[in-house]
Nucleic acid binder design. Structure first.
Lengths: 352, 352
DNA sequence: CTGAAAGCGCTAACAC
DNA sequence: GTGTTAGCGCTTTCAG
């Protein structure tokens, strides 16, 4: 049952193992009759090729490795707060991989580790994945790219910002999205808009801030230093950020949180200080995490197409799936569309 | 670099490949001198054993396969809502696996598929994982257990309810937790408490309902049929459920949602109908998803220790980690503690 | 304590 | 079209 090998199949079909291999790999020059006999034997025995043997024999390892950031992951572990980025990513990956006989390995990589080079090389030489999926902030780490290139493995980078000539690129336009959501606030009449940001190592942080600034500038608005707070994508950062912003003498009427969690922290902090939302303060976020829909007021945000980006990456990383794509689409960077989701947390400015 | 083999190491250390293998596997009867030379060579070359070769040669595959439910996953994909169960699970898994040289493969399994037996057998025979991690509802599917047993692979079941003599059991006491949170409402003065449930295929649904009923009964309270609505763990189910409950002639003062998402749907639905929360209606949930902390009012709930359960499962599934455990702890079912988290959505009943 | 030889299950050259 | 023969990089006998 679970223990049949290619020899069993060959014996059952009365052919050589090479013929079985040919049928299984869809190689040319196989008669229909032989193909049918082999397929029947495979069926009868419930035979499946061993991943290990295939990998060893030099063919495809049929494994895609997703490298996720240890720092963020461990932080979520410690704080007990979750984050659904990973779930959404894997959703996209698994929906694609299930169509072909490929498998997903999830690996935690500590990009801050002094032994990063070693750890990653070790990982690659032990797994020998067919492709590697990079998520922020790993997507932008030159050292990671160097190691990947040296090992010759194909890789896709989600949300990459730098070195855009390397790897398969899949992203959304964070900058433009941030511009849009800022413009949205401006169109609602807001002029004094604050920003609570994220760590610079995440390109998303920088791009979103840039988009924010660009929209402000394009509308002739200025952003005093007091209107900007640092953060780390978390709820706590939003909470701390809004304290700082409200403490300063800037009388903001709206705040843009670099992530939904941060924006929700901003909302909570503002309400704790007695502000009515959105009457006294409009708040917008970025990501469209589940919480955005469940908060009160519901949060205006940008829907980040994580699963879709992952799916696009996998399609280009996995040979059998890539074959189905239009050749032109294979090489070009993919920019997956986002959506501005206008909910209740942003409203027309009533009083100046 | 990435391409060194055991032969390279043997050559560099001036020993046979068998000696290298012995050192790597911590086998006895190796002189310290030899061990040191081998380790140095391994170090110098950045050598890592190939997973495929190890797997093929009959040793451990060093792979843990997590089987996640396709139905739920696809539903999340379609609806665009995420869920952080997977993230929390993997957090727990990866934190443990990183200590040893094991790897996580995530596989989607459609338990509703007519070809489940085939699909699963195929998966096992192609991956040959060292251990399998089962999450609800797969944990309780006898057919899944049968296939796993037939293949001889070790497996851990998170949240299993039936056939408790099979596999490694890791769970929380859903029933008692539901009892506790219901008791919490009762102690706040509530008497007419409603319930919005989940699909029966998830044991958690049944257990939570049982705990709810047990607490009500223990306090001499009855639950009319009109006070219970069916659902599927989602926000939408909570929304629909509360409509039904409020439409009926039961004048509930509190509602228990089988999950946080459902409870949040209940909250939203209640607020949409003009109720003030928690003054007019107390709501409690179950899971402690991130949204619970971010909602308004914040949601009273049970903290489900998903990552902790996953970690406990992995410790018992992975030989090198299992070796560190007290032998007594290895065989006994693990029940991971939960916590009742009292937030703002549940309050003392003011008027009857 | 150490090493030589024989596979694990498959694919890749190379025959026929 | 089809089969034979080598390995892939390890672990496992079995000898020393």
């Amino acid at each position: 049952m679970a223990g049949s090998t290619i020899y069993d199949v060959a014996a059952a079909a009365g052919v050589s193992i090479k013929s079985v291999s040919r049928v299984l790999n869809g190689e040319p020059n196989v008669s229909e009759a032989l193909k049918a006999r082999v397929n029947k034997a495979v069926e009868d025995l419930g035979y499946r090729r061993s991943l290990s043997a295939r990998g060893l024999a030099g063919a495809s390892s049929s494994v895609i490795a997703a490298l996720v950031d240890a720092g963020m992951t461990i932080e979520h572990w410690r704080s007990g707060t979750g984050n659904d980025y990973l779930s959404r990513l894997e959703l996209g990956v698994l929906m694609e991989l299930r169509q072909v006989d490929y498998h997903l390995m999830v690996e935690m990589v500590d990009y801050a580790s002094p032994t990063l080079r070693r750890d990653l090389s070790a990982l690659l030489s032990s797994i020998r994945p067919e492709g590697v999926l990079l998520t922020p902030p790993n997507s932008d780490l030159v050292e990671v790219l160097d190691i990947l290139d040296a090992s010759g493995v194909a890789y896709a980078r989600i949300g990459a910002e730098r070195q855009l000539d390397r790897g398969i690129l899949v992203s959304m336009d964070d900058r433009q999205a941030a511009y849009d959501v800022t413009q949205h606030l401006i169109e609602l009449g807001h002029r004094r808009i604050g920003f609570v940001g994220g760590p610079a190592v995440y390109s998303a942080s920088r791009l979103r801030f840039e988009g924010f600034m660009a929209a402000m500038t394009a509308n002739g608005l200025t952003v005093p230093d007091d209107a900007v707070a640092e953060g780390d994508f978390t709820f706590a950062a939003g909470l701390a950020g809004i304290q700082k912003l409200l403490g300063a003498d800037v009388r903001l009427t709206a705040v843009f949180g670099v992530s939904d969690d941060t924006a929700l922290g901003v909302m909570r902090g503002a309400m704790d200080r007695g502000l009515k939302l959105p009457a006294d303060l409009s708040v917008v976020g970025f990501d469209d995490s589940p919480s955005a829909m469940f908060s009160n007021p519901t949060l205006t945000t940008i829907r980040q197409p994580v699963a879709e980006m992952a799916a696009a990456a996998i399609q280009r990383l996995t040979p059998p799936l890539r074959a189905k794509l239009d050749p032109k689409d294979v090489v070009a960077p993919v920019v997956v569309p986002y959506r501005l989701i206008h909910r209740a947390s942003s409203a027309t400015l009533l009083r100046a």
